[in-house]
Design a protein around this nucleic acid. Structure first.
Length: 798
DNA sequence: GAACTTGCTGAATTG
DNA sequence: CAGCAAGTTC
């Protein structure tokens, strides 16, 4: 095939070695997607494999879509009898379950409902309430997250309960909630996101006939982003490859950033054990980035210990140096980005830029800055279309029409728009439903029938609601039998439920916007009708399974997104913002070295998104919880080769200081290691950071580079210095004191510097509580953020 | 029963 | 500074 000529040797091998298990270790920018799509095309066009016996699995719809497009393009002109199945893990599972779930014999039917996270949290909340637990002690979200991660580890309610230790009240409570939650899911004929995988795997494990069906169907299997697979996804692939081993997995362990979601990096590291005859191909030539960008990424990732040694190289030129900017605050950081984008556009008006941040909360300032500068942008993440309340409401009506036992959907819409069904009535429904042990929908039938326990007013309101739903069910079933468009049913759900009327009566701009969103939903349904004909059920499934990442628009010139969302993408111009200690690496990862390594991989991912220009930025202060907090530069900055970075800051900056003191590096590091803290008090008070902080950075660095020095300090290397020797610290004028609770009685106010016996000099970020229980959040350069009890921490002024 | 007010607590990353 | 829950008023 002629298109093979455009591939390098390794890529070609990865495409043409079609049989047997194969692991493709594809470094960033090494043409991974290319290899997968060419491989699929090759199988079909050259090997004559029937397209429908090929399965390719991705994590996002967007990736699947792109793959489909590229394969189609490669095969254009060829007549193919069927299409390969290119799907996300989740939709693959839905497909399997819609076909076979009844074989599990757990009470689920093929018309099950999918609960997204929001639904799932609501259900958890109801369980907490019904078990009489205090929902203040057990955060609904936290409980849901615990249940979710248990499921992803492969545990069910029973095994979770079995692991609860005696006396651990909280976990015991969660175990009981877990059990009730599962029970309710079955009663509602609903599966949450995790269940989609759990149940599909159970099905394949337990029912040999089902396993056979898929083993016979899929002869060639490809898995994208294999480093992000978790135990369930691994099991799924194992079962699907039981008979044949034509499995091709592609991934990069340096880009594994979903550990927190259960991703197990050992899936990729141990692939050769799992599939003993596996062939391994490494794609190490990077076609994306300049040498300088690649060198920086490489320098950072080298600080990780958990990795296979692999060196990415490129034939690309060194390119420009990376650019660094120290902003005063988050707003000026955003303004700087906007200004730079405009500057680059003067050179190249079509240049594509990405702004990458650690948390979605950071996006707002950038949105504002872009709007003010008149720069159109696309934002990925945050509130997606299907997460808007009005859209979810209509979807809930539709879900209810398909599955009236879905109590979560029912409760969502029973009084939306308001139709006179208040707390009293709802409580009554809840109580009776529990008494009778039936669903809310059935309870409503009983209540409207006997009318007992409710006043006539409520009864008639309830009858009204009942009629609305039965009518909608009628429309739905008629539509299904006559193959009429899905969009008609969606329209009915908006109009016949009184939803649009209620919005129109509001006469506000907000209501207007909501109506427009509903119009969008109708449009989506019309689009759907044009493309597929799998009915309302499938349309709803789509709505449940679209992800934030799917919002990425390829031709947008400016994209704002999290670093996670950026995986797999590339841009000529990239801004990595908020490189601050506690933000990136995130403070929650500070305690666990494995999590810190994951943050570092995330940093690696972010850097390697850039093709030509890469900006690294941090702000000196930013608002967190509406409170102004000072921040120190990220340790990742310090792990980069500083000579590859150009400083664009006006005036003194952390970088200029770090550079100019590079001759001090060894001296300071040695001194710090020796434990002589007394000398290290020179502090200009004007520049952002002090020599001390820099020395701490270098100390950490020399430890890591040296290898022999202990990584964590078990014994204090720095003795407590004499209290009198240090002058009181010049408090940073920019940082205000905490607005909540803190009393300016002590000396350790936010913004001041302290010295800790073990971590050395640090900056107080936050102060909570009073008296003996004063807790401080302190940022120690090189060690990250620590939470300390003032009384015991042995702090002193610095 | 619904609309409005206050007061509190809590955000990392996602299919 | 949010968003949400409980409390208050019409």
């Amino acid at each position: 095939m002629d298109f093979l000529s455009s591939l390098n040797k390794e890529q070609r091998e990865a495409v043409t070695e079609t049989d047997g298990p194969i692991l493709i270790l594809a470094g960033a920018g090494s043409g991974k997607t290319r290899v997968i799509t060419y491989r699929i095309a090759y199988l079909i066009a050259e090997k004559g494999v029937a397209p429908h016996s090929i399965l390719a699995v991705t994590f996002t719809n967007k990736a699947a879509e792109e793959m489909r497009e590229r394969v189609t393009r490669l095969l254009s002109g060829q007549r193919i009898p069927s299409a390969p199945l290119i799907s996300t893990f989740h939709s693959l599972c839905v497909r399997i379950l819609r076909q076979h779930i009844e074989a599990l014999k757990e009470g689920y039917t093929r018309s099950f409902t999918i609960y997204d996270q929001d639904d799932s949290v609501r259900l958890v909340k109801a369980c907490i309430k019904d078990l009489g637990y205090d929902d203040k002690q057990l955060g609904q979200r936290a409980v849901q997250a615990t249940i979710s991660s248990a499921k992803n580890r492969g545990e069910d309610a029973e095994t979770y309960a079995a692991r609860v230790e005696y006396g651990d009240e909280k976990r015991a409570a969660i175990a009981r909630i877990f059990r009730l939650y599962e029970e309710r899911l079955v009663n509602n004929n609903a599966l949450d996101f995790d269940d989609l995988l759990v149940k599909a795997v159970q099905l394949l494990r337990r029912v040999a006939e089902v396993r056979d069906v898929y083993n016979n169907r899929f002869r060639y299997i490809l898995v994208d982003e294999y480093q992000d697979t978790n135990a369930l996804q691994f099991a799924l692939i194992r079962f699907l490859t039981e008979k044949q081993q034509n499995v091709c997995v592609v991934g990069d362990e340096n880009q594994s950033i979903y550990r927190w979601r259960g991703a197990d990096i050992s899936n990729i590291l141990n692939f050769e054990q799992h599939y003993p005859n596996a062939r391994v191909i490494r794609l190490e030539q990077n076609y994306r980035s300049t040498q300088n960008i690649l060198d920086t990424a490489d320098a950072v990732i080298k600080f990780n210990t958990e990795r296979k040694d692999k060196r990415l190289w490129t034939a690309n030129p060194a390119g420009e140096r990376l650019r660094y900017y120290q902003a005063f605050d988050a707003e000026s950081e955003a303004r700087f980005v906007a200004a730079k984008i405009e500057e680059h556009r003067r050179e190249d008006p079509k240049i594509k830029a990405a702004v990458l941040y650690r948390t979605n909360a950071q996006s707002r300032v950038f949105e504002e800055a872009m709007r003010r500068a008149g720069i159109p942008y696309n934002i990925v993440g945050g509130f997606s279309f299907y997460e808007r309340a009005e859209v979810r409401d209509i979807i809930s009506y539709l879900k209810l029409a398909l599955n009236a036992h879905d109590s979560i959907a029912l409760m969502r819409v029973i009084n939306t728009p308001p139709r006179g069904l208040g707390k009293q009535t709802l409580d009554e429904i809840e109580r009776r439903a529990k008494d009778y042990g039936v669903s809310y929908w059935e309870t409503i039938a009983i209540l409207t029938d006997d009318g007992k326990g409710l006043n006539p007013r409520a009864t008639s309101a309830l009858k009204n609601f009942q009629k609305i739903i039965t009518d909608l069910v009628k429309v739905t079933t008629e539509s299904a039998s006559s193959d009429s468009p899905v969009s008609d049913v969606v329209k009915a759900a908006i109009l016949d439920t009184g939803y649009s009327t209620a919005l129109k009566n509001e006469n506000s701009e907000e209501a207007e916007a909501r109506l427009e969103n509903l119009q969008e939903l109708v449009n989506a349904a019309v689009d759907y009708d044009k493309q597929e004909q799998d009915g309302l059920r499938d349309f709803i499934d789509h709505a449940a399974l679209v992800s934030d990442q799917d919002q990425y628009k390829r031709d947008a010139l400016v994209t704002l997104m999290t670093m996670h969302a950026a995986k797999g993408l590339e841009f000529p111009l990239v801004f990595i913002v908020g490189l601050e200690d506690g933000l990136f690496p995130h403070s929650r990862s500070a305690t666990d070295p494995a999590e810190l390594e994951e943050e570092r991989r995330l940093c690696y991912v972010a850097i390697t998104r850039a093709e030509r220009f890469l900006y690294l930025m941090h702000a000196m202060k930013r608002r967190v919880y509406g409170e102004e907090m000072a921040s120190e530069p990220s340790q990742f900055l310090n792990e980069m080769p500083l000579d590859l970075i150009e400083d664009l800051t006006r005036g003194p900056s952390w970088l200029s200081f770090a550079r100019s003191s590079s001759t001090l590096e060894n001296k300071d590091a040695v001194r710090a290691l020796r434990g002589d803290a007394r000398e290290r008090t020179k502090y200009s008070g004007k520049t952002y950071d002090s020599a001390d902080s820099i020395a701490e950075f270098f100390r950490k660095r020399s430890q890591q580079l040296g290898g022999s020095a202990p990584k964590t300090q078990n014994e204090p290397t720095i003795r407590r210095a004499e209290q009198s020797s240090t002058a009181s610290s010049p408090t940073r004028s920019s940082s205000s004191t905490s607005s909540r609770g803190a009393q300016p009685s002590g000396d350790f106010l936010p913004g001041s510097h302290v010295r800790h016996p073990k971590y050395g000099r640090g900056l107080v970020l936050r102060r909570e509580g009073t008296g003996d229980s004063v807790k401080l959040t302190v940022s120690f350069p090189g060690f990250g953020q620590k939470k300390l009890i003032e009384k015991y921490a042995g702090l002193e002024k610095a």
